[in-house]
Simulated scan of single mutants.
Amino acid sequence: MIAPLTHAVRDQPLPEIAETVIEVRNLTKRYGRNVVHQHLNFDVRRGEIVAIVGGSGSGKTTLMRQILGLEKPTSGTIKVFGQDTSQIDPEEARLMRSRMGMLFQQGALFSSLSVFDNIAQPLRELGKVPEELLRDIVMLKLEMVGLPCKNASKMPAALSGGMIKRVGIARAIALEPELLFLDEPTAGLDPRASDEFVELISALHRALGLTVVMVTHDLDTMVALSSRVAVLADRKVLVAAPVEEVAHVDHPFIREYFLGLRGRLALQGLSPERRAKLPSEALEPACDAIALRTAM
């Protein structure tokens, strides 16, 4: 299910890395006595694809939800597009949200709405789009994510997992956002569908000049897409750098995650130029990892 867009932008250059669009400073998040983040700092620049990784309970999705304004930090500041999200009024917050799109882990489609109405929902919330133009926009978004227009009348229950994620992406880009947030974008997909979805995200990144922030535990997705990887550990962002630099950091989670069998297999998929920057441990034979993947 390859989107025509994938072929159209294959030779198009990556978006230029520019100014900072997300700035998180001294962030602390508590739930009662449970401290999830403590004095956390995090930046994202326009045009990047930043992957957030970390162990279970490290607060990856919680960080994303705070940036989106779905949760409030206990202390610290979050600036998006240069604006402090705690200082803006409801109308400014609404306009800011229109510049951001979100794909939730399971798609989060409205089960009582058709594919068409799910994608149209953000446009209808604006209340300014004529119905005829709205139809054209929805069909264009379906085409961009590689779904035939005949799927517009289907209900979510009739869709495969991969199709649900594509509809979720179509809805996320309905308002032509500048920022796209992805929560475990390839979770639940088989290897072929996962590879196709990675290609789709890459194509949208190029075609729309998107800045992408994604939470993922999938090493292949992280390596294939990310320009930088932010590692959450010890209640903070331990490091945020290209994956070949992250792999050099001497920390128990990083060594286990990036230099184990699965990590080595994923890292050895990097280009020769980037592989040359990896630590020697990452270049050890990954034949055991290949056998492990084949057995799955």
Rank of each mutant, 00 (worst) to 15 (best):
P272T: 04
A3L: 07
L113P: 04
T61S: 15
G161Q: 02
A93H: 00
V50K: 04
M144L: 14
A93D: 04
S153I: 01
L134G: 04
R228E: 11
V24G: 00
Q121F: 15
P272V: 04
R275F: 07
E281N: 02
V239M: 01
I52T: 07
T211K: 08
I22K: 00
R25D: 01
Q121T: 15
R171H: 05
T77L: 01
L27D: 03
E48C: 10
D11A: 13
A289F: 11
V213R: 10
H248S: 05
A18M: 06
V167K: 03
E273K: 08
V50F: 11
F253W: 12
Q38R: 15
A233E: 13
P272N: 11
P122S: 14
R33S: 12
S202T: 03
F181L: 14
L283H: 11
A8W: 12
F42V: 08
E125R: 14
Q12R: 14
P185N: 08
L180D: 06
E281Y: 06
R206M: 03
P177T: 09
S280N: 00
V213E: 05
E125V: 08
A3W: 05
S160G: 09
R274M: 11
L126Q: 15
D195A: 14
T61V: 11
V35S: 06
M64K: 08
N151C: 08
A157E: 10
R94N: 02
I17Q: 05
L189N: 01
I173Q: 06
G47V: 09
T211S: 10
H217Q: 13
A207H: 13
E256T: 10
